[in-house]
Amino acid sequence: LEELEQFAKTFKQRRIKLGFTQGDVGLAMGKLYGNDFSQTTISRFEALNLSFKNMCKLKPLLEKWLNDAE
């Protein structure tokens, strides 16, 4: 859980630094990986307001997006 919290915090900082909005991330993930995510979902991930199971599902996809974006 602590690792997920740290990743969510780091993800948000890096996303902002790269100049992407939460909506941008959701759209890009849909185009790149075929998984559409709403701005709300990205927001809830960053705020740790998703279930643990959903957080765990999203984390590898967001890590991949972040690596591709950088």
Rank of each mutant, 00 (worst) to 15 (best):
L27W: 06
T21E: 04
L32S: 04
Q22Y: 10
N35K: 13
Q13G: 06
E46L: 00
K59M: 13
C56V: 12
I16N: 06
D68P: 02
A28S: 09
Q13F: 08
G30A: 14
A69S: 13
L27P: 03
N54I: 15
M55G: 07
G34Y: 04
Q6F: 08
A47Q: 14
N54T: 12
G30W: 13
F37P: 04
T40F: 15
K64P: 02
G19V: 03
T41C: 07
E2Q: 09
K53F: 15
R15A: 01
K17I: 06
L4S: 03
F52A: 14
N49I: 14
K31I: 02
F20Q: 09
L66T: 03
Q6V: 07
P60Y: 03
V25A: 08
Q39P: 12
R44P: 00
E46P: 00
A69V: 14
Q22A: 11
Q6E: 15
E70M: 10
S43P: 10
L62N: 00
K64W: 05
P60H: 06
Q22K: 15
A47P: 00
A69G: 05
L1W: 11
L18S: 06
K57T: 13
L58C: 11
K12T: 12
D68A: 11
L61I: 06
E5R: 10
L18T: 02
G30I: 14
R44M: 10
L61S: 07
L58G: 01
A8N: 01
I42F: 01
R44C: 08
W65D: 00
L48R: 13
L50M: 15
W65Y: 03
K59P: 01
E2P: 04
M55L: 12
S51D: 15
Q6W: 08
T41Q: 10
G26I: 07
E5C: 05
T41R: 06
F20S: 04
F7S: 02
T21P: 02
I42N: 01
G19M: 02
D24I: 03
C56R: 09
A28I: 08
M55R: 02
E5S: 09
P60Q: 06
P60C: 08
S43F: 06
K31V: 05
S51H: 07
D36K: 10
P60N: 06
F37H: 07
Q6A: 14
Q13H: 14
Q6G: 12
E70A: 01
P60A: 07
L50S: 04
F37Q: 03
R44A: 14
G34H: 06
A47E: 15
L62F: 11
Q6P: 03
K17C: 09
F20G: 01
T41N: 10
F52I: 14
E5W: 07
S38T: 14
Q13M: 11
D36P: 08
L62K: 00
W65F: 14
E63M: 10
L4V: 04
L32E: 12
K64E: 11
S38K: 12
T10P: 00
E5A: 11
T41E: 04
E46F: 00
F45W: 03
A69E: 14
N49T: 15
R14E: 14
F37D: 13
L66K: 02
I16D: 04
K59V: 08
F45S: 00
T10Y: 07
F52N: 09
Y33I: 11
N54R: 13
E3L: 06
F37M: 12
A8T: 13
T21M: 02
F37G: 03
F52S: 11
K17Q: 11
F45V: 02
G23I: 11
E63D: 02
F20V: 11
G26T: 09
K57R: 09
M29A: 04
N54F: 11
K12N: 05
W65E: 01
N54E: 10
P60S: 10
F7C: 12
Q13L: 12
P60M: 07
R15P: 00
L27R: 14
T21R: 04
K31M: 03
E46H: 00
L50G: 07
D36M: 05
L27E: 13
F45L: 05
N54V: 13
Q13W: 04
K9I: 15
R14H: 04
L61T: 11
A28K: 12
K31L: 04
K53C: 14
T21H: 04
D36C: 10
L66C: 07
L62M: 12
K12E: 09
L66Y: 05
I16F: 05
L58Q: 04
N54G: 11
E5Y: 07
S43V: 08
L18C: 06
A47L: 15
L32T: 13
S51N: 06
G19S: 03
D24H: 08
G34A: 10
E2M: 12
Q39A: 14
E46C: 01
A8C: 08
L66P: 00
G23K: 15
G34R: 10
F52L: 12
N54Y: 12
L50W: 04
T40V: 11
F11I: 02
L61H: 14
G30R: 14
M29D: 01
G23Q: 11
D24E: 12
M55V: 04
E5I: 06
P60V: 05
L32A: 12
L58F: 11
S43R: 14
F20Y: 15
G34N: 09
E5K: 11
L27D: 05
L48H: 11
G19C: 15
I42H: 00
L58V: 13
P60I: 08
S43K: 15
T10N: 13
R15E: 00
D24A: 08
G26E: 11
S43H: 07
Q39I: 08
L18A: 09
L1K: 13
Q39N: 08
G34W: 03
E5D: 07
L61G: 06
L32R: 10
G30E: 11
F20T: 03
M29I: 12
E2L: 10
R14T: 11
K57L: 12
F7L: 03
N54K: 14
L27M: 13
T41Y: 08
D68F: 12
T41I: 07
K9Y: 07
I16V: 11
L50A: 05
K9G: 07
L66H: 02
C56A: 13
N54H: 13
D24T: 06
A8Q: 03
D36F: 04
Q6R: 15
T10E: 15
M55I: 06
T41V: 10
L32P: 03
N49P: 01
E5H: 05
L61Q: 08
N54C: 14
K12Y: 04
A8H: 02
S43Y: 08
T41A: 11
E46A: 00
E63V: 06
E3I: 05
S38E: 10
Y33R: 06
S51K: 11
K12I: 12
E2Y: 09
Y33W: 05
C56D: 08
M55A: 11
A69P: 05
T10R: 09
L50E: 09
K9F: 07
D36V: 10
G23C: 07
W65M: 03
E63W: 07
S38A: 09
Q6M: 09
P60D: 09
I16E: 15
A47N: 15
N49Q: 13
